[in-house]
């Protein structure tokens, strides 16, 4: 390949590129991990609501999932950034705008709520995959409904769900790139800054790609370890 381009990887190691990259990586990882924690907590709650006997809770859970899953994340981020503050009472809006890191907070809210809908859907399908007989057996021994889920269904379903949950975890990292559109200086934002400052797009976006690939590789390793650790003896191993 005859590329009319001279690489200069060294420029990535000196400021300002260096600090842009380091801050960008920290921002990507921090934002994604925090969003993932919230997504798991909210997603498990919403997913569980959809499995209860209460029609209202099921409806609310279903509405949440449909709402947040069916609007593109980019649009949701814009709504949280441009529309949501306008809907607040005046005092609250002023307080909100006065906060530090409004773009970061907005990205955290948007990403968490969006990923929560996807986690909720995985929880629902994971529980639906458990044979009905397990519920019957657990109930027949006198366990209450919460105990049935806590001691029998959840531990079993969680193992079934690990691969799907791992995939959502990786998606969270990749989706965090959209935060650049509302001004969060994560790694993709950093790559763009480097490109417009130095016109070195190849180097800049290689760093961004490598960041996503490395973090998701860690997720794969971690989830694989978790899966092996929780493997149920006697059941067909998943690899």
């Amino acid at each position: 390949m005859n590329l009319n381009y001279t690489f200069n990887w060294g420029m990535l190691l000196v400021d300002p590129a260096r600090s842009w990259i380091l801050n960008g990586i920290a921002m990507t990882i921090g934002l994604s991990l925090l969003a993932w924690v919230f997504a798991l907590a909210i997603g498990v709650t919403i997913g569980s609501m959809r499995m209860t006997r209460s029609r209202w809770l099921r409806f609310l859970g279903g509405a949440y999932v449909e709402l947040f899953r069916n609007v593109p994340l980019l649009v949701q981020l814009f709504i949280w950034f441009f529309v949501f503050p306008l809907l607040l009472p005046r005092d609250w809006m002023m307080a909100w705008n006065g906060l530090d890191h409004v773009p970061l907070l907005t990205a955290l809210i948007g990403l968490s709520l969006y990923m929560a809908a996807r986690v909720a859907e995985q929880i629902r399908s994971g529980i639906a995959a458990i044979p009905k007989g397990q519920f019957a057996a657990a109930r027949s021994t006198g366990l209450g409904e919460f105990q049935v889920y806590r001691h029998v269904i959840a531990p079993y379903a969680f193992r079934v769900m690990i691969p799907a949950i791992a995939s959502e975890f990786m998606t969270t990292f990749k989706n965090s790139a959209l935060a650049l559109t509302i001004g969060v200086a994560e790694i993709t934002y950093a790559a763009r800054s480097i490109e417009s400052w130095s016109f070195r797009g190849i180097e800049a976006f290689t760093v961004a790609s490598a960041t996503y690939m490395t973090t998701t590789a860690f997720v794969v390793l971690f989830m694989g370890w978790l899966e092996r650790r929780l493997r149920i003896p006697g059941l067909i191993a998943r690899r």
Partner: peptide, 29 residues
């Protein structure tokens, strides 16, 4: 739950809890 704990039931497909040891299956309830 109290009523059911006085009635034991055995199923066609066993329905043991796969993630628990045999001992834990028996002691759970």
């Amino acid at each position: 739950p109290r009523l059911r704990s006085e009635i034991g039931m055995v199923f066609q497909h066993f329905e043991l809890y796969p993630h628990l040891s045999v001992l834990d299956n028996v002691t759970l309830a």
